[in-house]
């Protein structure tokens, strides 16, 4: 029943060590230094949260992992070996699936078409619509998604519904690393709970999860480590138990939280 999200057996155990690492990654957009010399390790069985102010470079970091941005310098390693993530398809092929902040859904396509876009299920050279629709219902059921019809264009869905579709799409095909850029930003309480629940389940199965989030609740619920980005630089890595006030201080640069807050 759960095959579409979770593999029948846990992922094969690879020698301990990060699944994905960034080494000295920098990225500029014109004059803006979106990422500066960033080192990140993403481990299996771990939820790495990424926090930071608006414009801190979180989405750029997610984009590098997703293959949407090529770093100007630095290396991306998968299982310790350098790789080139030059397209989202390449990242996906290496087992890295991403929910983008802007969702990247094609408005004119329907829900099923969007869920399987780029990795459709075929049958003798043709699309297997029946199988895709069946799996679509399955994954949406698991996310407790409330979607009127999987054959309506996603244009007709609400922001939250679209976000669930984007999350569902990243989970199909059981990737090793799931990158989620603000996946709960416009979700209701129940859908947020489902997504967080799912993240915990992914972790239990051995997947690595990178979670970009502003929601203190998300971080408390699932984060194992929290990476703070400030103006494109890594400003420390904190444990999941770190209080939100301390994180805020790190994000805004007031490294020492005021004593009154302690």
């Amino acid at each position: 029943m759960n095959e579409s999200i979770e593999p029948g057996s846990a992922l094969p155990r690879t020698p301990a060590g990060p699944v994905v690492s960034l080494r000295g990654v920098s990225k500029r957009f014109g004059g803006v230094r979106a990422l500066v010399d960033v080192d990140v390790d993403v481990h299996e069985h771990e939820v790495l949260a990424v926090v930071g102010d608006n414009g801190a470079g979180k989405s750029t970091l997610a984009g590098v992992l997703a293959g949407a941005h090529r770093p100007d310098s630095g290396q991306v390693l998968v299982d310790g070996a350098p790789v080139v993530l030059d397209s989202p398809a390449a990242a996906r092929a290496l087992g890295i699936a991403t929910v983008f902040q802007e969702l990247a859904l094609v408005n004119d396509l329907d829900v099923v078409e969007n869920l399987f876009l780029g990795h459709e299920v075929g049958r003798g050279g043709f699309l297997d619509e029946v199988e895709m629709e069946r799996r679509a219902w399955q994954v949406l059921d698991q996310l407790a998604a409330s979607v009127p019809s999987v054959r309506d264009p996603v244009r007709t869905l609400s922001g939250g519904q679209r976000q669930v579709i984007a999350v569902a799409r990243a989970l199909l095909g059981s990737p090793r690393v799931v990158v989620l850029d603000e996946p709960t930003a416009s979700l209701g309480v129940r859908q947020t709970a489902q997504v967080l629940n799912l993240i915990t389940r992914l972790r239990a199965r051995g997947h690595a999860v990178v979670l970009v989030s502003h929601q203190a609740g998300d971080l408390q619920a699932v984060a194992d480590r929290i990476l703070v980005l400030r103006l494109g630089r890594v400003h420390g890595t904190y444990t999941g138990e770190t209080s939100y006030e301390d994180l805020l201080a790190a994000m805004t640069g007031a490294v020492r939280p005021s004593p009154g807050r302690r």
């Binding site: 989202p88 990247a104 094609v106 408005n107 004119d108 396509l109 876009l117 780029g118 990795h119």
Partner: peptide, 25 residues
């Protein structure tokens, strides 16, 4: 209507960037 290619064509035509991010060639 019935092949991956056709689906890619429609996806690229309606939202090229989203299609790219979805892994369409």
């Amino acid at each position: 209507r019935r092949t991956r290619w056709g689906r890619s064509v429609r996806a690229v035509g309606s939202d090229r960037r989203a299609a790219l991010l979805s892994g369409v060639a």
